[in-house]
Amino acid sequence: MEFARKWVQILFGLLTNANWAFPFTRSIYQGPLKVICSPGLNCYSCPSSTTYCPVGSLQNILGGIKISLSNNQYFFGLSVIGALGVLGAMFGRMICGWACPFGLIQELLHKIPSRKFSISRSLNYGKYAMLLVVVILFPLIMVDEFGGSSPWFCKFICPAGTLEAGLPMLLLQPNLTSTIGALFYNKLAILLSVLLWSVAASRPFCRTLCPLGAFYGLMNRFRMVKLKLDETRCTNCKACHHVCPMGVKFNENPDDPECISCLACLHKACKFEAISIEIGGMPIAATPARPLGTNVPDSAKYPF
């Protein structure tokens, strides 16, 4: 299953980044597909990107509300929130586990052999602050004299933007290097910290900083496709705790906002058929029976 998930992640990475002409055009894609919302975090100034980034778009629309209203345009970001809502209502953070390129990058980095560390659950609240304060409130409140604002998360924090757009665009358009300054070096430092942290800990950006992960996480409890716990079968052996890359204790909170539906607990851990998949309340797949006495291999464990 892990193998299949990796292929789905790669497929989504390629689908949201299908502009392979960029080495020749030396710029970003400007076709009609860019009206499609990227399900995961994928900078729309990345030269290969063929979709729009919901976090960037939402901030730009919210930051331009005053100007839009003065032109009798009623743009409040409803189409972006609606598109995200549809994805969240269907899949919640399953998007993070299966369809986000930046999630995949962090997973690959975590495979580099090194000492591994856990992440305190209290840090998980950081991403909700990012969503509420930096993505929504700052563009609405911190308005300049012309009535516009900046995409604060993109401008000061987003490591996906630096990696997928900033660095490639500097390579493709060397004249841009004359414009880099403190802002760029600040973002480069954040990117390097996130990349190094990803080697040592599992998906640190997703768990502590990503506003998109926060949005989908809020919908995890109500999503259509999710994992379900059969309490009558659960023996509280805690095997599911050890394999989870997001630090979820599945049998204690099956609707945890951190669960990315990677299915590791279902396929690698539970021996008692206590975990299954359901769609809208209807079970579709029970845990395949595992021979009793099979232990979770140490290589599959995370230090939580």
């Binding site: 778009s57 995409p151 630096t162 757009a165 900033g166 802002l183 760029f184």
Partner: peptide, 17 residues
């Protein structure tokens, strides 16, 4: 409006704006 933004290189997004 979304398309208009997505068609431009967002200098803020790439960290130089």
């Amino acid at each position: 409006r979304v398309l208009e933004q997505a068609w431009q290189v967002c200098l803020s997004c790439i960290g130089i704006g």
